[in-house]
């Protein structure tokens, strides 16, 4: 697999949220507003890239018997540092995300990438993999939170996470009488998730069917060529 394929895997083919169903706890819980999703996404990207790099650096000296505890220590340390930084510089984001920042430690995407990729590949490739997977996660939760926030409140808005009073944009797209506030509840999270996961699966099936057709045609052509040669 070349580098570009490896980097883009996280978006569609191996999308961690809607394709592999990883990291769902935080996905379902925090996708109520765009702000939360972007804050969470950036935190996960930072942790994922750094943990992949560190674990890749340590891959040759880490004894395989204790690799999981070593990964957990590395990941937990990074998450705690990120949490402290968020608490210090973006306190409003900290109170909005609450317990889900420390829970990044147990986000399966991070441990999954450490075990499946970073422990077997070089530093640069691992960083790229972390960035790709992190962006895949971030894009997924941004899409989900945009849908939920829009349907539940009728407003799509984004505030500067370092100064919550500073509104970067705020669009009122649906009149107040037509909003479905259910979408800000857990119930709405599951419904949105199901539709998006279904859409991704449908797209992948469609893509696979196309490829299979192409392959079959190529085979047919090859067979015909062989016949003619005879």
């Amino acid at each position: 697999m070349n580098r570009k394929e490896n980097f883009t895997a996280g978006f569609i083919r191996e999308n961690p949220v809607f394709g592999l169903y990883l990291g769902l706890c935080s996905t379902l819980a925090i996708t109520t507003t765009l702000n939360n999703a972007i804050g969470m996404g950036v935190a996960v990207i930072l942790v994922l890239v750094m943990s992949n790099v560190i674990i890749s650096c340590l891959r040759k000296v880490t004894p395989s018997e204790i690799r999981i505890p070593v990964y957990i220590v590395v990941i937990a340390t990074l998450v705690k540092i990120i949490q402290m930084l968020i608490k210090a510089y973006a306190p409003a984001l900290d109170s909005a995300l609450g317990v889900f920042i420390p829970l990044i430690v147990v986000n399966c995407i991070i441990l999954g990438r450490a075990e499946a990729f970073a422990s077997k590949n070089g530093i640069f490739d691992s960083a790229l993999d972390g960035l790709g997977m992190g962006l895949g996660y971030t894009v997924s939760i941004i899409v989900m939170s945009a849908i939920r926030q829009l349907l539940a409140t009728g407003i799509l808005s984004f505030e500067n996470p370092f100064h919550m009073d500073q509104v970067i944009f705020s669009l009122k797209l649906i009149p107040e009488d037509y909003v479905i506030s259910m979408f800000s509840q857990p119930f709405g999270a599951f419904i949105t998730f199901a539709f998006l996961a279904g859409a991704l699966a449908a797209y992948k099936n469609h893509q696979n069917a196309k490829e299979a057709k192409k392959e079959a045609e190529a085979k047919k052509q090859a067979a015909q060529l062989a016949k003619e040669a005879k």
Binding site: E65, I66, V70, T77, M84
Partner: peptide, 28 residues
Amino acid sequence: HLTLFLALVAAIAGGALALANSLTAPIV
């Protein structure tokens, strides 16, 4: 060997955390 390796990793992690805490605690 295993014990020492894990202890070393944990010690470095602890050091990094202490550093980050000393930087952010006053702001928090």
